[in-house]
Amino acid sequence: MSLRNADISGNQPVSLNREPDPAKEQILLSKLREILLKDDRGNIADIQDLISDQEKFSEVVSPIVEFHIETMKRKFPKEYKREVETIIERKIKASQDDLMNVVYPVMGKMVRKYVTMQLATIRENVDKRVSSFFSFKGIFGRLRSVIFGVKESDIALGDLEKAIIEEIYVVQRDSGVLLGHYSPTEMLDRDMVAGMLTAIKSFVEDAFRREQQDLEMIEYGMHKIYIQSFPLYYVSVVLSGPLSEKEKVGLSSRVLDFAEKEMNRFTAKDFEYWDESEISEKLVEHFGED
């Protein structure tokens, strides 16, 4: 279709497509912008004032932030439960040994304490029953115990003789590397002893394939090696003389105490470059008086 139209008066056709004037257009645009953005400019200036005045800004923003925090707190367990669980699970798996190293002595101590308490209660109950049950049978039984009784003499002997700590070794669990030792007397190379002890321990534990069970005692003549295992290391106490159950429980508590106070802070990485004098000194502090 032609863009040219005839004039009403019949004159030459007039072109409707005038060439645009950039200068004019620019002026018009500026005016238009001024009209349309007048309110916005005002708003921006208000916002700038608000931002520069911290107090005012805080008044406006704080309720919004608080609202979102509250909402977040409320929704967090539901919304992010899976993610948090996955992260914690992954973290625990990655540092399982270190975690166990911290938890193990505490758990062991609690279990020992509980068992000791229970044994004491049982003993008290038995004593009560024995003293109250003063029948012929009871008297006969006690007489027999007095005549043939091993227990009373055991107790008497136990009081006279006590187990003496000869040596203590703290050894890295898998490698058999000696982490610290306490020994009042000079003896065979301790590194080799720690290594062989680890090999014997590994051999016994592997041979019987009892999961989660550790070798606890090696006996030779009048000597005993009491072993208490932890996830990253084990403590081995060489004793001479008889070791009663009560003393064993006491020794175990002392080893757990030592582990809790002196060993918990270490991770597997710390044992990579190790100075055994630190732990050796701590062993003297804890067991030196024996």
Partner: peptide
């Protein structure tokens, strides 16, 4: 400086330093 060889035959390992 070595341990006696009997350890090796008994438990299958010998440790030395």
């Amino acid at each position: 400086n070595r341990f006696d060889d009997k350890y090796l035959t008994t438990i299958g390992v010998k440790v030395n330093k």
